[in-house]
Design a protein around this nucleic acid. Sequence first.
DNA 1: TCTTGACCTCAAGTTAGGTTTAGAAATTAC
DNA 2: GTAATTTCTAAACCTAACTTGAGGTCAAGA
Lengths: 150, 150
Amino acid sequence: MALNEGLSIGALAQRTGLAVSAIRYYETQGLIRPWRNTGGQRRFNRADLRRLSFVMIAQQFGYTLPQIKQELDRLPDGRTPTKGDWTRISKSFRATLDQRIAMLTRLRDDLDGCIGCGCLSLKACALYNPHDRAGEKGQGPRFLMGDPHG
Amino acid sequence: MALNEGLSIGALAQRTGLAVSAIRYYETQGLIRPWRNTGGQRRFNRADLRRLSFVMIAQQFGYTLPQIKQELDRLPDGRTPTKGDWTRISKSFRATLDQRIAMLTRLRDDLDGCIGCGCLSLKACALYNPHDRAGEKGQGPRFLMGDPHG
DNA sequence: TCTTGACCTCAAGTTAGGTTTAGAAATTAC
DNA sequence: GTAATTTCTAAACCTAACTTGAGGTCAAGA
């Protein structure tokens, strides 16, 4: 492989730990844009290693591929994230993470209350219609672990 | 509807807030076992309201339907959860929840370290191969947001 | 040169947790 | 008794994020 010919998809797979099929899939989703060599095979920049690493991290944080694409698209064409980019993005990750931790903590508190009360004949319960999606559907009151006519 | 004929699927849907189609689906998954009236329509016990409420809560906690079925199957045939059942089960929920909170908190700490360091040329990074699935695949070292030959 | 392994495309399959649709039968309301 | 709801089944469809398979091509080593 000559010096300036870029990485093959297999090499990229080995170095990121991703499956070859996953990398191809990411291409269809617009997360990476390899070029083709004369034989029609994909060739990648070293910067794509970082892009894929970024994808993997963002997935850990629960981001969907379209959301990740959105972040990557904010970078000037094909650029590898700089320290400044990373700082901005990771602060947004941090906020998301804080929210999720807070949500679970509230759920835990609700559950603790519920363990104490036995919760089997409640007409309303904190576990029902939890904070993170209250009012989402507007379907009126529901009953939890109990029968309103019970 | 005579007093002892049980609830129709629509009534159950109204009182739980679930879609009729979801209730039918739960039956296919073995979470509830309605009987049929002479016309072939499903009829439910009031206890099924609690079973379904239980399903909905457990889903909030991230349990899959097979896992929920497993919990319900531990109850003597068709029984509605008693206070004792609920205490046991909710303690298990609590443990799961604690784990998930701890995991996210570690992730947040790692991220905080990573914001500081810039993280763009690391050969190893705490965000890579996070605690909750370390060693999962045995694929050797991977590189994160950095190029090992960089 | 030959062979083997990596790579190509495109379509279909996978899992989870359901929803939608179609056509028919049962039930309820008037 | 008739019309309007509900309910029935079975199969197809849905999203997300990929994987698998079939059939064919490219590249690298002996």
